[in-house]
């Protein structure tokens, strides 16, 4: 699994949305992404992007 720290937040948001819609196939991420709103997804992405 690729580490998420320091990733571009827009990429993370796009990936989460694609997992949520099923457009991007996954094992578990689709099930988890469905638990978060767009606002929450953006907050997660911003936090991850700020980590080193």
């Amino acid at each position: 699994m690729p580490p998420l720290r320091g990733h571009d937040p827009a990429e993370i948001v796009a990936a989460m949305q694609a997992f949520r819609s099923g457009e991007r196939p996954s094992t578990v991420m689709g099930r988890i992404a469905k638990g978060f709103s767009d606002d929450e997804t953006r907050a997660i992405a911003a936090w991850l992007a700020a980590q080193r």
């Binding site: 094992t27 578990v28 099930r31 988890i32 992404a33 469905k34 638990g35 978060f36």
Partner: peptide, 24 residues
């Protein structure tokens, strides 16, 4: 195989976020 869930406080408890989670 896996089971996943997302949870939030609701009614004084930690409850499932509807529509999220589930099994393989």
């Amino acid at each position: 195989i896996s089971i996943a869930g997302v949870y939030h406080p609701a009614g004084g408890q930690l409850a499932d976020v509807e529509g999220a989670g589930g099994v393989s």
